[in-house]
């Protein structure tokens, strides 16, 4: 499979800050690729260089076999970029907005209206962009990125500041886009989002990629304990500690939590003691991987 994106040895410095410090990755055709990282990790700068908005100090980028810098009019129709939800022409309705963006790519008004349907905004076609809710504006900005049917789509924190319903709704839209065979690159700092949507993720911090791989593989690689909790009282903490494979036990009066690296035998033992009331089994998540890599201290 050929690579849609190929990035090698990217570096970018702003004054004293080395924003991007030797980033390399490849994205094959049709992949849903995520870039994760705390604020200031360098993911936005990386994305901007890859999109062709900034020039790298060092390194090489190829999109669909073409270099994005300097501005490459041959490449632009083949990529779609979603920036912030506010990057609209003022006082136009959703339909007018999308048609105007479409016209920049030579897309007919009819096709633009279809895209409105795709992102579920057909009912809001005549509403001015200033009047759209956060989720609707995000969907419209994604529609503006997709209106010319690009092979490669960049989405920069598309679900930031959305409520849970709007996020889930948007995930469905994104999954549908990816199923259509497009390659998607997404930045986010929602771990659940990355875990759910992305085929592979790159975790960035301080301008470097710390880990890269499928979310499940990264989580397994962490070797973090699984936490099994049952309702407090069904089993004494002492008895739980005696079970084979148990690392740690705690009971806060609501739940008894058992940490183990051998969840199957612990569950079997609990089941034999008929102590599975209110059981919840939680494995490590991408969030644990992320925190393990980037540290837990607060950074503004």
């Amino acid at each position: 499979m050929k690579n849609t994106i190929s990035v090698r040895g990217l570096r970018k410095r702003y004054g004293d800050v080395q924003a991007v410090d030797g980033v390399s990755f490849e994205v094959p055709e049709g992949e849903f690729f995520g870039i994760l990282g705390p604020n200031g990790a360098g993911k936005t700068t990386t994305l901007e260089i890859v999109e062709g908005l900034r020039e790298a100090d060092e390194g090489r980028v190829e999109l669909l076999g073409l270099e994005p810098w300097p501005r490459n009019a041959k490449l632009l129709p083949r990529i779609g970029v979603q920036l912030q939800a506010t990057s609209f022409f003022e006082r136009l309705t959703a339909r007018e907005q999308l048609r105007t963006f479409g016209s920049l790519y030579g897309v007919s008004a009819r096709k633009a209206d279809e895209m409105l349907e795709t992102v579920g905004l057909a009912e809001k076609a005549d509403v001015r962009v200033e009047m759209l809710s956060g989720g609707q504006a995000q969907r419209l900005s994604i529609a503006c990125a997709l209106v010319h049917d690009p092979e490669l789509v960049f989405l920069d924190e598309p679900t930031a500041a959305l409520d849970p319903q709007a996020r889930r709704n948007l995930w469905d839209v994104l999954r549908a886009i990816n199923t259509g065979g497009r390659t998607i690159v997404l930045t986010t700092h929602y771990m659940d989002e990355a875990e759910l949507l992305c085929d592979r993720v790159a975790i960035m911090d301080r301008g470097r990629i710390l880990k890269l791989g499928p979310p499940a593989a990264l989580v397994r690689g962490l070797d973090a304990p699984t936490r099994i909790s049952v309702a407090s009282g069904v089993l004494a903490a002492e008895d739980a500690r005696g079970l084979a494979g148990v690392d740690e036990v705690s009971d806060d009066g609501v739940s008894l939590v058992v940490e183990t690296r051998d969840p199957s035998s612990v569950v079997a033992a609990l089941s034999a003691k008929d102590a599975l009331d209110g059981v919840q089994i939680r494995g490590a998540t991408l969030e644990d991987v992320f925190l393990d890599l980037t540290g837990r201290e607060y950074r503004a």
């Binding site: 908005l53 501005r71 129709p77 990057s87 963006f101």
Partner: peptide
Amino acid sequence: GLLRRLRLAP
């Protein structure tokens, strides 16, 4: 960010 967006249109 509209200028950036327009810059990325052909």
